[in-house]
Simulated scan of single mutants.
Amino acid sequence: MNIIFYRYNSVCEPDFIDAFKQMGVNVVEDDDGMKGNLDISTKIDRLGDLIAEYSPLFIFSINYFPFLSIVCDRLGILYMSETVDCPVFEIYHNSIKNKTNRTFLFDYGQYLSVKDYNPENIFYLPLGSPTERVSKLLGDESRYLYDVSFIGSLYSEKDPFTELKISEKSKDKLMSLMNEQVDKASFGMEWIEDNLDEESVKEIKATDSLMGSTEYVCDLDNFIVSNNYLSYHMAYMERIRMLNSLAENKDINGIHLFTRSNTKDLDKSIICHGGVKTLTEMPFVFRQSKINLNITMRSIQTGIPQRIWDIMACRGFVLTNYQPELEEYFEIGTHLETFTSIEEMNDKISYYLKNDSKRETISQNGYEEVCNKHSILMRVINMIKIVTSA
């Protein structure tokens, strides 16, 4: 059985390739997505040559690419994709209706927003843990080097909201909305979505070429404002607030941040290490931290981000903001811990730093749970079952 795996250098690709190979699938890698100098027509021609040579059961990609869907639809070949980001704007492209698609979305809120455009071929499937790769990499590593750590961007370098050329009145309205959203819930953007004003959206639309496009199955104007502008700024706001609040917690012997972002707005006591390599260095930080903090992007409405699955694969202790889907797969307080406010986050950090045995029991429980039920290999098996039974 051959498949063609379209690659664009996502860090998730190697784990999925390994999983397909464990299933006995011959994976033909199309790495044209890694070559920034290739135009779409060249990619299509070269993909066509691969299809003619290998006669694949399906084309696969991490995240959804409309041009792959269009090619597969014209040739009558299945196109399977798994989103690892949210939002993925491309899933709203008109090509999402193509009957050769087999599209898997990890965020249930995102799934609900698009499923009716192709109900037989769009599926909800949570992300998984890279348990086998991580176990081989870490071996028996068991040292603790950090009390509390966070790996991730602060989004100071990815914040389009700060560059918006709109009136101060509209910016103030949007800032107020973001602050209210953060105060009202620890996840999602429901308050913002319900209260966006038309004037602010109209001003942003005048600067954004995606808004108003006819290439999409629905009007994305409000969605783009919420997810492409406000969610990034909210991520920056929340991460700075949370990390700075930890700096005042006297029970913590060092807050360790691993990021390539500008850290100028952080408390000077926070220990900034720079970035780490996702596949080879990050797992050691997760294993060597007593508490691993997760702060989910607001654009992930209900789902479980990859960071949580990665931490648990490393037998790390997870403390995360609450997300509705967590309780579908884990028992809070048994497999991981959650918080719904900065105060609760600090209280739980203090508690678990003083209770090593409880913390380590939760870490072990979480690790066993993802190994037994939620590995990436298991997710790939599910996808292949769905594709081959169609």
Score class of each variant (00 low, 15 high):
I342E: 15
R239T: 06
I342G: 14
P119D: 10
N321Q: 14
I59R: 01
M34Q: 13
M211G: 09
S55T: 11
E29H: 04
S213Y: 11
E199T: 02
K268T: 15
Y79W: 02
S341K: 10
P324W: 03
L377M: 09
F187Y: 15
K358T: 13
D30K: 00
Q110I: 07
V370E: 08
K354L: 15
D39R: 02
L50V: 05
L293Q: 00
S341H: 11
G366Q: 05
S153R: 05
L145K: 08
L127Q: 08
F60R: 00
H273W: 11
R239N: 13
I332Q: 08
Y155P: 07
H374K: 01
S95W: 02
K373E: 13
E193W: 10
P66R: 00
F106W: 11
H335P: 14
G303C: 11
H93S: 01
M34V: 15
F65R: 01
T162M: 02
G24E: 01
I304R: 08
S167C: 03
I362Q: 03
L243C: 08
D265M: 09
V380H: 00
N222R: 11
E325C: 05
G109V: 08
D183T: 15
I51N: 00
R298T: 04
N2S: 02
E82A: 08
F106K: 06
T103A: 12
E157D: 12
D30A: 01
V134Y: 12
T162R: 01
G33Q: 04
I166W: 04
K250V: 04
Q301H: 14
H256R: 02
N228K: 06
S226T: 14
C272D: 12
G48H: 04
I44F: 07
D32G: 09
R74T: 11
E328N: 09
I311M: 14
F67L: 01
S135L: 10
D347V: 13
P130K: 03
L230P: 06
I224F: 07
H233P: 02
I304A: 07
L319W: 02
G139P: 05
I295N: 04
A247I: 10
E343P: 12
N244K: 05
K35G: 10
N228F: 13
K158P: 04
D356K: 05
T162L: 03
D183Y: 13
F330R: 05
V380F: 06
T131F: 05
L230N: 07
V201N: 09
F223P: 12
L174E: 10
Y351A: 13
M297Q: 15
I240C: 11
K348S: 14
R102T: 15
R379A: 13
E215L: 07
E132T: 09
I240S: 14
D15Y: 00
N195C: 13
L257Y: 01
L57K: 00
K358G: 04
I342S: 13
C12W: 02
K165M: 12
D32N: 07
I342A: 09
T131D: 09
E327W: 05
G24F: 00
I376D: 03
G24S: 03
I300H: 06
D73Y: 04
L293K: 01
I59Y: 03
A185V: 10
P283A: 09
Q323A: 14
M234G: 05
L243Y: 01
L220Y: 06
